[in-house]
Design a protein around this nucleic acid. Sequence first.
DNA 1: AACGATTAAATCGTGTACGACTAATTACCG
DNA 2: CGGTAATTAGTCGTACACGATTTAATCGTT
Lengths: 152, 152
Amino acid sequence: MADSQHDAPAVTARLDDFLCFSIYAAEHAFSRTYKPLLAELGLTYPQYLVMTLLWEEDDQSVGQLGAKLSLESSTLTPLLKRLEAEGRLTRHRDKQDERVVRVKLTSAGDKLRERAAKIPACILSATGMSLDELGKLREQIIQLTKRLEEAS
Amino acid sequence: MADSQHDAPAVTARLDDFLCFSIYAAEHAFSRTYKPLLAELGLTYPQYLVMTLLWEEDDQSVGQLGAKLSLESSTLTPLLKRLEAEGRLTRHRDKQDERVVRVKLTSAGDKLRERAAKIPACILSATGMSLDELGKLREQIIQLTKRLEEAS
DNA sequence: AACGATTAAATCGTGTACGACTAATTACCG
DNA sequence: CGGTAATTAGTCGTACACGATTTAATCGTT
């Protein structure tokens, strides 16, 4: 009443109507669901994402990891240093191009992969969704992300 | 072999296959899309979420805001103090119950709502999706979030 | 070979985000 | 009525996350 004259849309949209907010909330929910599982491995959620990339393909540069995660070196460098201090990986300048730092798993980091292997199944069951549903939803979200990135 | 009795799936799942990662990436993409729009108003993304809640309903407690955003007081208190320092809102102990702090918009904070009104439309166009598609996607993500919260 | 432009990481400052703990207030129960 | 439990914010320590800047190395052009 007070905030809409004639057929004008509401001046203030409800936060619950925002797609961005549902994603914000889902991100937190995922992070909280992973937390106890990852705590057993001594990893945080972003650290787990980095380790997953390295388990997939070892010996990547900081820049490669950053491109895949959409993270700046200002975020990755301290994160990688923590993982290095804990003996999960090593960081060394590339001999061919001294500007790039190559990140490699240690044997301890590689071994962690086995202990982490059960996690995806735990999360899957927490979502209560089928692999098929999950895949479709993922595709839609990836599409959305692409559009947002193009628009900026 | 070691980790499944029948025909074994890959030992390491690809990060791109993780729904959680698509959401992680979408959250960042939204945040980056909002950033330039919000910068004009002098707000960060989480601050904007709080302001939206207050534009929707003024005079809420820290606890109410935290429940809606799934944020702890340890996150909200500093955020609210910054908004208070910038003159967007006030924080005062409730007279009836001195444990609770009530958050109210200042007139400057209320006025900001008009300048923020155009933002949802900007974001909508950045997604390139119809309101209908957006709504359906939002519902699916909310469902997913509920399941994750129940599972923990 | 030389030097300006570009690139890759790292550093710094600000702002979330959370868990564990503390302080103050209120509610509850015998 | 009084003491204990529960509730509400706030503080502290750790860890992302980003923009702006810096440093070092390489590339491109002449």
